[in-house]
Design a protein around this nucleic acid. Structure first.
Lengths: 215, 215
DNA sequence: TAGTTCGGAGAACGGTTGTTTACTGGATGA
DNA sequence: TCATCCAGTAAACAACCGTTCTCCGAACTA
């Protein structure tokens, strides 16, 4: 661990990270397609032209933000799904993890929720791809659970997407609830989310016995 | 039906509608917070300053678009929920209606999906409010169905929100699928959506018998 | 130590933006 | 018919934008 990076590259990565941080902050109250290059460099304190040393344009910066924001999700999902509690405990644990994740990285969550259907194609595709990987991991984990016995892969995948969408929506709702001044709003969101996951879990448990026709 | 409006006001509403249409078109490939006032007036073919005769700013135009986009949803939900078929038929009918709605008003759907978490506060709130009314209507309709016997209002509302979110997500996914060149992508989305609704429906049917603790 | 690499600075470019102010001309209503 | 209203026009404003080109100086390499 003597050299590891060199002063040059270390400094470069430092200002690159500063650009990402500044952009993420500014994106709390606007969307990527309206975020200016100069706006970002002004916050960082560097010349506008220095931006090009790190990103070709704002779209490329957006894609980098996607990786930063959704990269950490994978360890999170593993943490949740690894546990072998009962269904009820797992639901509580899941919502709790989402809750703390929202509180720890609010700007990342906001960014993903906003740009998932936002105006920059490259960023949309990056998020879609990442959420797809996410769903695939969830599906793999669901498959190993006893409840999934007799399920075809397509149905497991369908369920996984249902869960992933639900978690993303919950995270976004939680963020909005905390942004508003309303006192018990966040708690309300959490309680509703728990019940929704519970209902899905019940549907899952009775899925096989109710599937008659294929359609 | 002789006068009904007057030439003056009629013309005004006409260019107002032209502004809305032009904006909606431009918003297919960018988000509201980056849409310029001049950009819109240029498409319509009027002077930039004429914009102010109709809207204070782009945010106000956005709110008007929300009403236009989500106003028609209410007749749609009534059409779906009024029918008294079996659960399976109702699911098929629901997805079919969503599908045709997406095909008829793709720009409106795109706009709502994009600005629901977009960068303009007033528009976000308008969408949230409209979806809230939407959920309330769904809840009222669900409550009359026999399956909901013994359900408390809170749980019905919880289910309604689950359905509404699911439909919005499905519509957005359907739109993306059709935008991409992929051939069977739309059909795939529809088939997944049907199964997801079916699973939720099953969970709903077994909800009461499985509810032990209150929590 | 001498030469090269490269992140960042600075100035300048053409173009676009939102907004103001004053004005025009046809529909409106007495 | 005549004064009033008002949707749309035209010009000008300062501010901002993305991008190009040239240059500097510190970190690298040999």
């Amino acid at each position: 661990m003597s050299h590891s990076l060199g002063v040059r590259q270390a400094q470069k990565q430092k200002t690159r990270q500063a650009l990402l941080d500044a952009a993420l902050g500014l994106l709390e109250e606007q969307s990527l397609s309206s975020l200016g290059l100069r706006e970002v460099t002004r916050v960082v304190g560097i010349a506008p032209t220095a931006f090009y040393r790190h990103f070709r344009d704002m779209g490329e910066l957006g894609v980098a933000l996607v990786e930063e924001a959704l990269g950490s999700l994978h360890v999170m999902v593993r943490a949740i799904l690894a546990e072998q509690d009962g269904a009820e405990e797992r639901i509580d644990r899941t919502v709790a993890v989402v809750e703390q994740h929202v509180r720890r990285y609010p700007l990342h969550i906001r960014f993903v929720a906003r740009e998932r259907h936002g105006g920059v194609r490259a960023v949309r595709q990056a998020i879609a791809g990442e959420l797809d990987r996410f769903a695939e991991e969830v599906a793999a984990a669901l498959k190993t659970q006893p409840v999934s016995e007799g399920w075809c892969d397509d149905d497991v995948r369908m369920l996984a997407e249902l869960y992933v969408d639900r978690l993303v929506m919950t995270a976004a709702a939680l963020l909005d609830a905390e942004a508003d001044g309303a006192e018990g709003a966040a708690g309300q969101v959490v309680r509703v989310a728990r019940r929704q996951l519970r209902l899905i879990s019940i549907g899952r448990r009775h899925w096989r016995e109710e599937q008659s026709g294929d359609r």
